[in-house]
């Protein structure tokens, strides 16, 4: 089975669309890679694949090899030069950054790499989607991976049913690594409209027996880049309350960072107003010798300067610890 050399599979789910499943998947993948793990990302959103855009590899095409498809590489495992961000408070990231960071390889697979034209609609009914999801799970030749993240479309329908059917079958075969299907990270936004849909997704996990690794509350608050005042654009705290109600872990609240949007949209290295400190780490400031709108470097390198990176560093550390304790 092509999934045999994957140690852990993590699903990213949400009942609601546009809450940031792909954005969270991207950041989890980049952070895992920064922590030295080898990572693969599988995008099974067939009618609206966003992963190629997030990793800035929209122009790439999938290559075919005997026996299957070769995923599109984002970067190879390598030593990354020390980050320019002046790290303080001696947190784990700071020490590693001083001597450079060993990053793990990262590759992606998405229907976006197969479509001839990026604007074409994929108008498929259920059976066709089911077949495609199954093919993605069985015919992709992943390199040996520590983590495979699977980004899903919103809802609890065809893609999800076939994903779980196939995964539950393949991970229970004797050849599969133990506890291969680690569980699901559920993403929500704080407002009640989103929470009510995501509750359905948590019930879906319960019904199908998928362990919920935790809930991430995305788009909780927006920090004005001008005056640093935080506004709760989509209210706040709903994710944590929901996690408590369903007795699942709460991984953290993630604010909206326009610099992250800019990094994804235009590939610009994030820069912050003077004095921005996130999780005890001072962010790279404007006019601090840093070039405004620099697009140089790997995505993963630029991501280190994003204010969300320290946040995800903590989230991923907790996730990895949790997953390891079960192995």
């Amino acid at each position: 089975m092509p999934l045999d050399n994957i140690k852990n599979i993590v699903l990213v789910l949400s009942g609601k669309g546009g809450v940031g499943k792909s954005s969270v998947t991207t950041q989890l993948a980049l952070t895992l890679s920064l922590q030295g793990h080898s990572v693969g990302v599988l995008d099974i959103d067939l009618t609206g694949p966003s992963i190629p855009r997030f990793f800035a590899i929209e122009e790439e095409k999938v290559r075919q090899a005997p026996g299957g498809w070769i995923p599109v590489p984002v970067h190879d495992g390598q030593m990354l030069a020390p980050s320019r961000s002046p790290s303080t408070n001696g947190n784990a990231n700071g020490d590693a950054a001083a001597s450079g960071t060993q990053i793990g390889p990262l590759s992606c697979m998405s229907l976006g790499f197969i479509l001839p034209n990026r604007n074409d609609a994929v108008i498929w009914r259920g059976p066709k989607k089911t077949a495609m999801v199954r093919q993605f799970l069985t015919d992709v030749l992943w390199p040996p991976l520590d983590y495979l993240l699977i980004d899903t479309p919103p809802g609890t329908s065809d893609e999800h049913i076939s994903l779980l059917e196939t995964l539950l079958k393949s991970t229970s075969t004797p050849g599969a690594p133990p506890n291969q299907l680690a569980g699901a990270v559920v993403v929500t936004t704080p407002q009640a409209v989103s929470i009510s849909d995501v509750k359905k997704e948590l019930n879906f996990c319960k019904k199908t027996g998928i362990r919920v690794l935790g809930v991430i509350e995305n788009m909780a608050g927006f920090v004005c880049p001008n005056c640093s005042e935080c506004t709760n654009v989509f209210s706040k705290g709903g994710g944590e309350v929901m996690a408590r109600e369903f007795e699942v872990g709460f991984l953290g609240s993630v604010a909206v960072d326009p610099m992250f949007v800019r990094l994804v949209e235009e590939g610009e290295r994030p820069l912050y107003p003077k004095g921005t400190v996130v999780e005890g780490k001072t962010m790279v400031e404007r006019g601090d010798g840093a070039v405004e709108g620099s697009k140089e470097g790997f995505l993963v390198d630029k991501y280190r300067d994003c204010s969300l990176a320290p946040l995800f560093d903590g989230i991923v550390r907790r996730l990895v610890e949790d997953i390891r304790s079960r192995d």
């Binding site: 927006f222 004005c224 880049p225 001008n226 326009p258 800019r262 949209e265």
Partner: peptide, 18 residues
């Protein structure tokens, strides 16, 4: 566009890069 209730500065949270 989003107008900060604190300083009335308008930010493009979801920037229209294209």
């Amino acid at each position: 566009g989003f107008v900060c209730p604190g300083c009335k500065h308008e930010s493009q949270i979801f920037r229209a890069s294209t």
